[in-house]
């Protein structure tokens, strides 16, 4: 479960000088069940806007997004989200953060703690169960955020540059862990990133967006079997393709 159909989604913003900015221009995209898709593109191409619309946090001016044939109009537990900034609730310890979604579903205390503990173990933070977010490093916090989103058992997981604030080393480790979790949990994942390397390493498909207006420029299939070797020729070749596309797209003078 977790097929996403994006149909003719447009979203415009008005700038301070009353000029219009077309962040998304009748964009259509279908994402298969259990697929891991990355969105890349020059800054201002509407990656985050698209993700927020899929989440139900923003609304398209026209077009629609559906998940398993049910329209998404407002945020809800069917879709999980891992934000770029630290979004853990600082007043709750790790266990209560991860159990939050289950608490909203009125799951009993014992059951929700049991399930939350499972996901905390899954992201390797067993010994931090009763810590508060401020006691954790950036990478650990994002792991908790992933556990918190997964504990709600969403059909679709959205990730908005979740590892953007982490150092290169931690980033690589987190990517490996995400793939391991994805193998175990089998979810549809839409992953926004600035890093081409990250996109090639993780994705089944890479969707390259153009900016002003925001459209799907190219979709690239990544058929390299996992685990992928970042230094292999196939990896480098796909990387080069994506980078070339991005360079081309970036030369068009864009507005902020």
């Amino acid at each position: 479960m977790g097929k996403v159909v994006i149909t003719d989604v447009s979203r415009r913003f008005f700038m301070d000088d009353k000029t219009e900015f077309l962040a998304l221009d009748s964009l259509s995209l279908t994402i298969k069940d259990d697929e891991l898709v990355s969105l890349v593109g020059p800054s201002g191409c509407g990656k985050t806007t698209l993700l927020r619309i899929i989440a139900g946090l923003d609304h398209p001016d026209s077009g629609s997004v559906s998940l398993d044939n049910i329209l998404i109009t407002k945020p809800g537990p069917r879709v999980g989200m891992v934000f770029q900034e630290y979004s853990l609730f600082p007043w709750r310890n790790i266990l209560d953060n991860v159990a939050f979604g289950l608490e909203m579903k009125k799951t009993g205390r014992k059951e929700r703690y049991r399930q939350a503990q499972y996901y905390i173990d899954l992201v390797g933070l067993t010994s931090f169960t009763f810590c508060y977010p401020y006691e954790l490093s950036g990478g650990m916090r994002q792991r908790v955020a992933i556990a918190r989103a997964l504990a709600n058992d969403p059909d679709l997981l959205l990730m908005d540059e979740p590892f953007g604030a982490l150092d290169a080393q931690t980033r690589n480790t987190m990517q490996e862990e995400l793939l391991q979790i994805w193998e175990k949990q089998k979810k549809t994942i839409i992953f926004v990133t600035h890093s081409v390397d990250e996109a090639v390493y993780l994705s089944d498909r890479i969707v390259v967006l153009s900016s002003d207006p925001g459209r799907v420029s190219t979709v690239i299939d990544v058929s390299i079997p996992r685990p992928r070797d970042r230094t292999s020729p196939e990896f480098a070749s796909i990387r080069r393709d994506v980078l070339r596309l991005l360079t081309l797209l970036d030369t068009t003078p864009g507005k902020i």
Partner: peptide, 27 residues
């Protein structure tokens, strides 16, 4: 971000958002 994170986890009613997100954050 706290409000949006809450909404994504199924905390969508005003009453719940106040009780579970806004109040503890404002303490």
């Amino acid at each position: 971000i706290f409000v949006e994170a809450g909404q994504m986890l199924g905390c969508t009613k005003n009453r719940d958002l106040i009780r579970f997100i806004a109040f503890p954050a404002a303490v």
